[in-house]
């Protein structure tokens, strides 16, 4: 089955344990104010705005034989200046590719035996559960581990087939308080919290990611609540908590001046987690 792939990072050291190939799918169902990759959110509308702005003429607007508009990306001309994604009015990118699970897996195979697994991220990859199920089956046949990186807004308990071939999940909890979550992302978090518990119960919750943005919500309260929620499960299956300091890189102009939390504050948050028995706490 076909999906739109934003990019594939052959060797990633930050998308789960060890060396992994990370696959970023296009399209997201929420809209975080501090989104670090806004160009992965929307689907290309073929408006052509980016085509004229590309300094390398790496983009071309074509009409196909059937009369459809097509945005052609010439990779060999691209210098990665990112002008196209900055000018795109639809939070999208012209540098995506339509790929099915076999094509994606062919890209993954190039990294073997250097990688231990793959991670699918986004956008929000849980919008494409069937694609992931098929891709993960191929990965499993090749003895690669499989991980999902998700914003948690889609109910995992309704995707048993996918979970059967998924080793573990990295889950964002953007805020524990539902109102905060709504303000930051435009979406409620009841499913996120449900997922956290469900995945922790089934031993599939590898990592919880918390982006700390002091100007947007009370992270200390949120970390406290998350610690309380997950501590019972952490005792059985070690859960890694990654505390991510908000940084303005890649963020949309209007939110670039949000305050970056200082090291002392991050230290305080990790101490809350250590006190609750979490031993694997990363601050990045």
């Amino acid at each position: 089955m076909e999906v739109v792939v934003n990019k594939i990072i052959p060797f990633s050291s930050v998308d789960g344990p060890g060396n992994r190939t990370a696959i970023f799918l296009q399209g997201c169902n929420i809209n975080c104010k501090y989104c670090h990759n806004p160009e992965t959110r929307g689907m290309c509308q073929k408006c052509g705005v980016c085509v004229d702005k590309c300094p390398q003429n790496a983009l071309e607007k074509r009409i196909t034989a059937t009369g459809e508009i097509e945005i052609v990306f010439k990779k060999e001309l691209c210098v990665g200046c990112d002008t196209c994604i900055h000018v795109c009015p639809h939070d999208s990118s012209p540098r995506t590719s339509v790929m099915d699970e076999k094509m994606v897996f062919d890209e993954v195979k190039k990294q073997m035996p250097f990688i231990r697994g793959i991670t699918v991220s986004g956008g929000e990859c849980m919008l494409q559960p069937d694609f992931m199920t098929e891709l993960f089956k191929l990965a499993k046949e090749a003895n690669l581990s499989t991980m999902i990186d998700s914003n948690g807004t889609i109910d995992f308990s309704e995707k048993p087939e996918l979970l059967a071939v998924t080793d573990s999940v990295m889950l964002d909890i953007k805020a524990f308080d539902c109102n905060d979550h709504h303000r930051i992302t435009g979406a409620n978090n009841d499913i996120v919290i449900k997922n956290a518990v469900f995945l922790a119960e089934t031993g599939k919750l590898f990592e919880v990611r918390i982006v700390v943005v002091p100007d947007l919500y009370d992270a200390e309260q949120s970390v406290n609540d998350i610690a309380n929620l997950l501590a019972p499960y952490n005792a059985q299956n070690n859960i890694r908590i990654k505390l991510i300091s908000y940084r303005p890189m890649g963020v949309r102009e209007e939110y670039k001046n949000l305050k970056v939390p200082d090291a002392k504050y991050m230290q305080k948050l990790s101490q809350i987690l250590y006190n609750q028995g979490f031993s694997d706490v990363l601050v990045v």
Partner: peptide
């Protein structure tokens, strides 16, 4: 993530 280097 020192396992990254181990895998390499």
């Amino acid at each position: 993530n020192p396992e990254f280097i181990l895998d390499i």
